[in-house]
């Protein structure tokens, strides 16, 4: 629809929309996060849902304990290798469309604990992450910003065409393989379909 006509109509009191916009508006205005705290960042996540920061302003205050009812997984804290299979399994249990926010340095890359033997070096080794929030821990404002970024991302999703989001495509993986406990490390150490090591060319004298 022509933008000029649309704004003209809205001046006349006629509101027009498209099915896609309506659908995305509904989805982005009621993102239900999974009630899922791993470590320090979870406290800031709780603080974000409390009176001062009030995540309810963005329609995301309904923290669901069950993955079956959640749209958004906020990976709030250090993912250890012992916890990683459970995180992937919980994500698999969430219904599509689903999104992941990696909150804090630990969830992004292992953060300060990167050199630990039991620390997963970033949840993006197993899951596709939509928004990363840096910080240790990120302030609640940063989480709100991440939520707004995610809302923009949802609003920009096209339901048809080649750029469809994963949940509208048949070829995208519906489940992600759950890593197994091995004798020394997780098996596999990362999901090659989701993540490959960054390519670095070293030139050294």
């Amino acid at each position: 629809m022509d933008e000029g006509l649309r704004s003209e109509l809205s001046k006349q009191g006629v509101f027009t929309t498209t099915l896609e916009e309506l659908y995305n508006w509904g989805r982005r205005s009621s993102v239900w996060p999974l009630n899922f705290g791993l470590a320090c960042c979870a406290i800031e996540m709780i603080a974000a849902s409390m009176a001062r920061f009030d995540i309810a302003r963005f329609g995301a205050e309904v923290f669901r304990p069950s993955p079956r009812q959640a749209d958004l997984m906020i990976v709030a804290g250090t993912v250890t290798k012992k916890m990683a299979p459970q995180v992937v399994r919980l994500f698999n249990q969430m219904p599509e469309p689903k999104y992941v926010i990696a909150m804090g340095a630990c969830a992004i890359s292992g953060g300060p604990f990167k050199q630990g033997y039991n620390v997963l070096k970033g949840i993006d080794r197993y899951l596709p992450v939509d928004v990363h929030i840096p910080g240790c821990p990120p302030r609640p404002e940063a989480l709100l910003h991440a939520l707004m970024t995610l809302q923009q991302k949802i609003a920009a999703q096209r339901l048809t065409g080649p750029e469809r989001p994963p949940h509208a495509r048949d070829d995208a993986p519906a489940e992600f393989p759950v890593p197994q406990y091995g004798p020394y490390d997780l098996n596999p150490p990362h999901n090659p379909e989701v993540w490959q090591p960054a390519a670095v060319v070293r030139d050294e004298a």
Binding site: P183, D185, P189, V200
Partner: peptide, 24 residues
């Protein structure tokens, strides 16, 4: 107590070699 049951090493020993899993 802390590691999973299938784990076979003792990580706090001084000669423990951790899995080589950070690339960059």
């Amino acid at each position: 107590l802390l590691m999973w049951d299938e784990f076979q090493d003792h990580p706090m020993r001084k000669d423990y070699v951790e899995p080589d899993d950070y690339e960059y």
